[in-house]
Design a protein around this nucleic acid. Sequence first.
DNA 1: TTTAGGG
DNA 2: CCCTAAA
Length: 674
Amino acid sequence: MVLQKRLDYGFNGYQAPPTPRAARSVRRRCLFKSKADVQQMCAFDLLATVAGKLLLEGGNSPPLLDQVSKKEQLVEGSDGKQEKTENILADEKSCDQDSYERNFLAPDPVTENPNAILPHNDPVSRPASGITTSNCPEKHSSAEHLANDDCKLRLGIFTSVVNPDYSACKIFANNGSDDEIRKHIKMESSVTPNSSTCNGIDLCHPVACDKKPSRLVNSVDDKKLLFCGNHSPCGPPPVNRDNKKLVARDDDDNSSGFTESQIRIKTFRPSPPIGDSKIRKLLASRPHKVAPPVKDDGRYNADAERCKKHISKRSFKRQRSPRDYPFKKRKFYVCSSMSDSDEGNSGGAIGSSPTLSRRVIKTQDSAAGERASFHTSNPQVKLKIRSFRVPELVIEIPETATVGSLKKTVMDAVNAILGGGLRVGVLLQGKMIRDDNITLSQSGISQDKKMDMLGFSLEPSISQAPLQSFPDNRPCQLLHNDPQPLVRYTPATGISRNGIQHGKLGTPPDHAGNDFDNFVECDHDSVLSPPEMSLQKPAAQLKAIVPVPKMEPDALAMVPLKKSKRSDSVQRRIRRPFTVSEVEALVQAVEKLGTGRWRDVKLSAFDSAKHRTYVDLKDKWKTLVHTARISPQQRRGEPVPQELLDRVLATHAYWSQQHAKQHLKSQLDTCLLL
DNA sequence: TTTAGGG
DNA sequence: CCCTAAA
């Protein structure tokens, strides 16, 4: 059977040491109402693990355990809470009701009752991005506090506002025990004394990370919790609503018993079995939000809904084509800072909501003389990165495999990705900003300008020596000391383009797309940024190569499914309507050369028009023919002289006839030969 | 790379 | 215009 699924991985997860317990803890934050949900997410459990320690983020909060307990309670009574959640969602304009119905299976407990779980007002639980709070507390409104609180739950990047240059995050991958590979991801950040006292920092601290969780875990260990390895701003996994009616439970690795049907995600189209003995699983990367936003204004849900909607629309095939994940669309999700109202309508800009946590980081540029410039000519841009998305993965695993092995497999795949090379891309309004030399303001990123969509994306790194190349003094480093054979990694254009395609490619890159465009969800703080705040490109550089454990024929197999086709750089070309004169030239050329010779037409009539490709000409001709056939009232755009349209029809008819004749002739010839 | 088509 | 499958 084939199992396809998208996996989200909160970048913040990097700081989470992935002990199963931690994962569990995380899960508790993401509740799924249906068993199906849980089952689906099962594979992501490990991811959750990776992301683990989410709760740690709240480590400083004394009532953490209590919170957990409360959460559990919430879980049990989740049904009763759903309504509330829905109401909240209903307020979100951009929330697609339908998609909600279909996908919003797992009300976010936090959303449902934020207060019950997170101490919004608890100063101690301030944002991981303590920087934000600590540096300019007075700047934050209560709303921001909430956001900050949320931040602490998910933030994975800690950057000192004061010493941005220091910040660095590292991911340590340790080959764990048999069944579990534990990835210890730590975020290291140099912070100023003040910021170091922030929760986020503490949480990041290795010690904090390693110990608090267990404690936490113990308290909830035997509780049955809805598995949620994939709760993110993008919401629950794309599960079919029909499947949800169970109580999700993911006690442990032993909680197997998943049958094929159970595992299957309806949303995914079961593809022709690869082999009965194998389960093919596709892990998609969806922002894995370890800790749901604390916002109670419903925005979070709105985002989630959008994501869900997006996801739900996908049809999964055995091997999804890039089309399933149009990069263009996806990249919009990366991040969005536009107003809520705008958000919903921007082509799938479900990315983020301003209400979420903020990761404030500084750019190198602004690092120097920042304070001095503040309030003057060099306003700071504040933004946050909500999460990075993990590349899509395809995993094949025998049905007889244990859940534990499945988890391990997924974990391995994730680790492989994390250990791979990634670089960061910056997108503004969905477009990649490739020029690294222009200033933020030049690129349109400014504090006073409402950044509609500022996003970050992770894309295959060009660098083969990722760990060594941190040209930009990138704050994040991903380390993994578990080199594995490269297997079945199917890089897409992005990688291959960079010549970084290593390892055996066992499967076709069906995701020419950009699943690999893990991106960062970020939010731009529309509020004037405090002096200390600035923008920094959160970067995570990984090897471009994704080492995947080599597998025996029948062994677990995982395939990081796709990479970015053209990374994020793929910008849709600007629309350049044909002018009448161009149409004229086109018609003339086609009259002469005929249809089907677009290259010649191009060379003949548009040789100098660099932006007009033969495909464009072909498309234009197609539309011209269509236009000519419809009534003038139905036509749009710059009117094309009827005379030209007539010629188009005549020419089209003529050449169609010619082609038909040619075809007949060839057929005749064939017959004669036979 | 081109062509042909669907999206 | 984009994206692909085919050629």
